[in-house]
Each structure stands twice: as C-alpha cells, then as structure tokens.
Amino acid sequence: MQSVIDAVLPVFALIGIGYLAAASGVLDAGVTDALNRFVVWLALPALLFAATAKMSFADIDHPGFAVASGGAMAATFGLSMVLDRRRGKRLADRAIEGLDAAYANSGFLGIPLGLALFGNAILPALVISVLLTACLLFAFAIVLIEADLARAEGGSAPGRWATLVRTAASLARNPLLVSPVAGGIWAATGLALPLPADRFLGLLGAAASPCALVTIGLFLHQQRERADTAEVARLVGLKLVGQPLFALAFAWLVPMPKPWFDAAVLLAALPTGTGPFMLAKLYGREAAATSRAILVSTVLSVVTVSALVAWLGR
C-alpha cells in the first residue's frame, strides 16, 4: 500500500491538478492544445531519444515482454471487433473502437507511472510499449480505416497501395516513433552522447512526465459528449479488465524478469489514450464513445491501477 501512495497517488494527483486548472479557468482549451504539442513534439521525444541512445541490445532483449504486450493488444483489439458486429456498423468505426479497447495511454501515463514505480531500469520496457502502441497497433487501425473508406468510395488495388504509403508516411512523421528509432541508431554507433546534448535532453525530457499528466487532466475536462452507456461499458471493461488479463496470461507463458512481468501487466491495465480520439476526428468518424471511454477509463483507473500495483507489490 505504501508503494501505491508513494508512486501512484502523485501521478493521478497531477492529472487532477490539470482537471481543476481547466475547471477553474486558470488554463483554457488553447493551453491544452499547446501543452499537448509540447509533450508530443518536444518533451517525450527528448526523453525517448535520450533513453534509447544509452541502451544496449541486452537492455531490450526481452522477447517475452514484447509477446505479452503485443499479444494482449492484438487479443483485445480482435475481441472488440468480434463483439461489435451490429448491423450497419462500418469497419472504420469498429477499428476506432478496437483502439479504444486496446490503446493504452503508454506515453502520457505509462512512462511517468513506470518510472515512479520501477525507476530508470524499466525505461527499455516503456520504450517497447510505446513503439508497439504508436506503431503497430495504430498503423493496423489506420490501414483498416483507409481500406473501409476506399471501399465505400469504390477504391481498387491502387487505392490500397496508396493506403499503405499514407500509413507509412504518417508513422514516419510521428515523433514518438522517430525519436526512439533515432536514439537506437545513435546507440548502434557506440558513441556516448556529448555532455551538453545529454544535459539538454535531460532537462527537456524531465518536463515530459508532469506536463503529460497535466495535459490528460485538461483533456478530460473538455469531454462532454454523450454516448451509448452499454457501448462505453464494453470498451472500458475490455481496456481495464480484459487487456491486463490477456497480458497476464501471455506473461505466464513466456519467460521474463520480474520487473518486466509487472510492467507488462501494468501497462496493459492503463486507461485508453487520446490516440483513438484524434484518429476519429481526423477521419470525421463518430467520437462520442471514444471520448467517453477515455474519460471513464481514466477515472476508474485510479482504483484499478492502484489495486493492481498493490497486488503486484505482494
């Protein structure tokens, strides 16, 4: 219980501070967008680049963790698609809801929480989780959405190739993907980071955790859209209960060190991130269920994640 108080409470308190700042008018919607861009384009990339630039292959040589995390994402996404087979529901909308169920908030919440609980030694696991979420899972959902929209517009094979090109281009512009890849390339050279660069990245990266958590609180205050209660309950249940159970099952089947086992289960239990909401807005799809799932899962995760941390600690 002490670990919950020492590590989890400050993390969720920062989210609460962001919410209260928005509710009181101290920070408005414009600040939310600006702070979000700062975290996504500057602070988190600096943290991820600095972390991967100092890693060796031995640090990330944990295939069991990748199997547990990736398997849990895939199983949850697939189960959501299977459960949502209502007549007239577009594949694009089902893909976004699959993200709602499987897209953990690894970057904004997982990194601060993981560092608070496990320290810098678990950074490689956090980087792998961010890559799996922001690259493979997100890319697969984009391919499904683009394919569905192309089919509705009478698209053909060239359209599918264009879909893959657009998806690759989108990923290549994602700073949360580019920064750890660039850091890995630097690590492969065997060169140490110059001291001024290391200190610069350290200062900028140190802002990632608090700013990301405050941004979550600001975003949650803006969510006022109504959605189908049963649909939101299904998505939140899959995210907070289904995905960590899948991760636990996979983690028991594949060998990995104890901290990586804990991290795999904990990261799977995180609430839904904002990625699905941004994707829904980008493609002009219905976003009410997504925004509500983000809000409800984040609020409930205060209890579920705290309980999980206490269980893992025992």
Score class of each variant (00 low, 15 high):
Met1Ile: 15
Val4Leu: 06
Ala7Glu: 08
Phe12Asp: 03
Leu20Ile: 10
Ser24Leu: 11
Gly25His: 08
Ala34Asn: 15
Asn36Leu: 14
Asn36His: 10
Arg37Ala: 13
Phe38Asp: 08
Trp41Tyr: 15
Ala43Cys: 10
Leu44Lys: 07
Ala46His: 05
Leu48Ser: 00
Leu48Asn: 05
Phe49Gln: 02
Phe49Cys: 04
Thr52Asp: 07
Lys54Glu: 05
Met55Tyr: 01
Met55Ile: 11
Ser56Asn: 15
Phe57Gly: 13
Phe57His: 15
Asp61Ala: 12
His62Val: 15
Pro63Leu: 07
Gly64Cys: 02
Ala68Lys: 12
Gly71Gln: 06
Ser80Arg: 01
Ser80Gly: 03
Leu83Arg: 11
Asp84Met: 14
Arg85Glu: 10
Arg87Cys: 14
Ala92Trp: 15
Arg94His: 05
Glu97Trp: 12
Glu97Lys: 04
Ala101Phe: 00
Ile111Thr: 07
Leu113Cys: 01
Leu113Asp: 02
Gly114Leu: 12
Gly119Tyr: 03
Leu123Pro: 10
Pro124Arg: 03
Pro124Cys: 14
Val127Asp: 10
Ile128Val: 09
Leu131Trp: 04
Leu132Gly: 00
Cys135Ser: 10
Leu136His: 07
Phe138Thr: 15
Ala141Glu: 01
Val143Pro: 01
Leu144Met: 08
Ala147His: 13
Asp148Ile: 03
Leu149Met: 09
Ala150Phe: 14
Ala152Glu: 15
Glu153Ala: 14
Glu153Gln: 15
Gly154Arg: 04
Gly154Tyr: 05
Gly155Ile: 05
Ala162His: 15
Leu164Trp: 00
Arg173Asn: 12
Asn174Ile: 06
Leu176Gly: 07
Val178Cys: 03
Ser179Val: 09
Ser179Lys: 00
Ala182Trp: 07
Gly183Thr: 01
Gly184Cys: 03
Ile185Pro: 04
Trp186His: 12
Ala187Gln: 00
Ala187His: 06
Ala187Asp: 00
Thr189Lys: 02
Leu191Arg: 14
Leu191Ala: 10
Leu193Pro: 01
Pro194Lys: 10
Ala197Phe: 15
Gly205Met: 07
Ala207Trp: 03
Pro210His: 01
Cys211Asp: 08
Ala212Gly: 03
Leu213Phe: 09
Thr215Pro: 11
Arg226His: 15
Asp228Tyr: 14
Thr229Tyr: 09
Ala233Gln: 06
Arg234Pro: 04
Arg234Trp: 00
Val236Trp: 01
Lys239Phe: 02
Leu245His: 09
Phe246His: 02
Ala247Leu: 09
Ala249Gly: 11
Pro255His: 06
Pro257Asn: 01
Pro257Thr: 02
Ala264Phe: 10
Thr274Ala: 15
Leu279Ile: 04
Arg292Gly: 01
Ala293Asp: 01
Ile294Asn: 00
Leu295Gly: 00
Val296Ala: 03
Leu300Cys: 07
Leu300Asp: 07
Ala310His: 12
Ala310Asn: 08
